[in-house]
Design a protein around this nucleic acid. Structure first.
Length: 536
RNA sequence: GCGCUCGUAGCUCAAUUGGAUAGAGCAUCUGACUACGGAUCAGAAGGUUGGGGAUUCGAAUUCCUCCGAGCGCACCA
């Protein structure tokens, strides 16, 4: 139980004493933006004032008085401030207790949560068409999906990651035509793929002059190189699911039958339609074209039926680029048409990554390849850069700045903190300094503002992970790790761990502070998929 | 034209989901170790949160309304 939970319990109990019912108001403690407002703060009086029928300050005063009458561990003072906040000031001992918890639970167990309660969730991401190399935007959402999966796993979900391979349809046909055109020395068709990689594939392709064969060959080759690129970033997929396998299996027919049984299918103009307007879409959608082919949507719905009803995922998270938002309404309608509660499907739309010098487009052939970026700044920097901000925010990448100043990248700042920690360990070894067991060490000597700042950061990690997981926002972990690294650099600068001017007691306590920091950095970096080097 | 997603310091992004004086990094200027790795630390400057209304104890956040940007509006995938 954290100190915040303990204080929330005390407040609830005090409210009971005062005869105030909570109804659905939840007591929760926040860390004020300013330290002068105390270590923890509650806005409960502001939230309940109207219901109770008194002014927020007056109510806060009563709550405060009742709290002052109690003895609560670590609490030094309780006071009313501002419009009616109840602020708690805590003794440093609460942070020393945090340190003990961090090192006792360690990398595996500190800030390991059970929010998901074992729920089976599938995260589908990247799923780029195998018609060309991945570009930077794919890498951004790839890092996002992978980090989200790691985060959800740590927070108690049972996660499976998946790449949906669009290995059929017009785009593959067009790819085949482009390869054949290049092989025979002709111009690539208007809607075809112009990139240099098509020329390379044409040179290697030894099959017949068949669009299907050439397309299948090219798609397979491109998919191989996509896997290699993703490998470089440590992005792992549990499943690679073929769209062609769906269309060949008869699952589309079964899926349509299911919707027909719910009276949501009709025929018109030789085509088969889904009555999606009844389920919130702006128009009805064709599932089977007049020529008998299934549309992309039909395949996609069969795919989602497979996710939910065949494989039994309780929740599915689809990560799409914002340029696919047009298909969300029909997908959601279709899922509901299958009798699946639409709240079980979450579609996360990632805003597009644009470059300072023009935007990226796969067709035009002038986009920036993910491999090029990794070549320039390395996999760690690529991952951290892509996890710096919310995917709801459209990001602009200044390629010149990122590549030219790669030594100034935030990833080095964070990794440097880890390397410094490792360095302290090496120096200890050289000088024969031995860290004693933590219960033999007096942690109360840790009182320097820099030391307390580090511990305060570590205290926030569980709530950071809770927020990041529930909001599907791994960038919050990036913010955390940057803050923790910053606090550690400050500590390192002002508080010497080893040396002549440092007492034995300080050295021992600080060695444990260093170890706790290592645990915190390690947890966060692992979630982000960024390495923690012992030397740089 | 309709719809979706957005608009925060010169630039790239935060803001405890409605909380107290909107914060970091980069860039600019000024400082700091004979000591565990200076890829560090400290300070200064930088804002009418696109504009205007509304809701309430309280708004960058919610609701209208303009302005601007990106994307999408197929029997393509």
């Amino acid at each position: 139980m954290t100190i915040a939970d303990a204080l929330a319990t005390e407040i609830s109990s005090v409210l009971g004493e005062l005869g105030i019912a909570l109804d659905d108001t939840v007591v929760h403690l926040e860390r004020p933006a300013r330290l002068e407002h105390g270590d923890l703060s509650s806005n409960i009086a502001l939230a309940l004032a109207k219901q109770v029928g008194s002014s927020p300050r007056e109510l806060a005063g009563r709550i405060c008085e009742a709290l002052q009458a109690r003895t609560i561990e670590h609490v030094v003072s309780v006071e009313v401030a501002g419009p009616g906040f109840v602020n708690f000031r805590l003794a440093n001992s609460w942070l020393h207790a945090v340190l003990v918890a961090v090192v006792a639970e360690g990398v595996d167990d500190y800030a390991r949560l059970d929010l998901g309660r074992g729920e089976r969730v599938q995260v589908e991401f990247v799923s780029a068409n195998p018609t060309g190399p991945l570009h930077v935007g794919n890498g951004w959402l790839g890092s996002y999906g992978d980090a989200l999966a790691r985060l959800l796993r740590r927070c108690g979900w049972q996660v499976s990651t998946e790449y949906y391979v669009n290995d059929t349809g017009n785009q593959i046909r067009m790819l085949g035509e482009s390869v054949l055109a290049r092989r025979s020395g002709n111009a690539v068709p208007e809607q075809g793929y112009q990139g240099a990689y098509v020329l390379e594939l044409a040179e290697r392709y030894e099959g017949p002059d068949s669009v299907e064969d050439a397309g299948r060959y090219a798609a397979e080759e491109i998919l191989k190189s996509i896997r290699l690129t993703l490998d470089r970033l440590g992005i792992v997929f549990d499943e690679w699911y073929s769209q062609a396998s769906i269309e060949e299996s008869g699952k589309v027919t079964e899926t349509i039958a299911l919707m027909r049984a719910r009276n949501l299918i009709y025929e018109e103009g030789d085509a088969t339609w889904l009555r999606s307007t009844e389920l919130g879409d702006v128009r009805d959608r064709v599932l089977i074209k007049a020529n008998g082919d299934a549309t992309y949507l039909a395949g996609d719905l069969a795919y989602h039926r497979d996710k939910f009803l065949v494989r039994g995922f309780e929740r599915v998270i689809d990560v799409f680029g914002a340029d696919h938002h047009g298909q969300v309404a029909s997908l959601e309608a279709g899922v509901e048409a299958l009798g699946i509660d639409r709240s079980r499907l979450e579609v996360k739309l990632g805003q597009l990554v644009s470059l300072v010098s023009g935007k990226m487009s796969k067709r035009s052939g002038n986009y920036v390849r993910l491999d090029e970026l990794i070549d320039e700044i390395g996999p760690d920097a690529t991952r951290l850069m892509s996890l710096m901000s919310s995917i709801d925010q459209s990001t602009t990448l200044d390629l010149d700045a990122v590549t030219a100043k790669s030594m100034d990248n935030p990833v080095f700042y964070v990794q440097y903190a880890y390397a410094r920690i490792s360095s302290i360990g090496r120096v200890c070894e050289e000088r024969g300094v031995i860290r004693r067991e933590i219960d033999e060490v007096d942690l109360s000597v840790l009182g320097h503002p820099r030391e307390l700042d580090v511990l305060r950061s570590l205290y926030t990690l569980p709530s950071v992970l809770r927020e990041a997981a529930t909001e599907r926002a791994p960038y919050k972990v990036t913010n955390f790790v940057r803050t923790l690294a910053g606090e550690f650099h400050g500590f390192y600068h002002d508080c010497r761990v080893l040396g002549d001017g440092v007492s034995e007691a300080e050295t021992q306590a600080r060695l444990w502070l260093v170890e706790a920091t290592r645990v915190g950095l390690s947890i966060a970096l692992t979630l982000l998929g960024v390495s923690a080097p012992e030397q740089m």
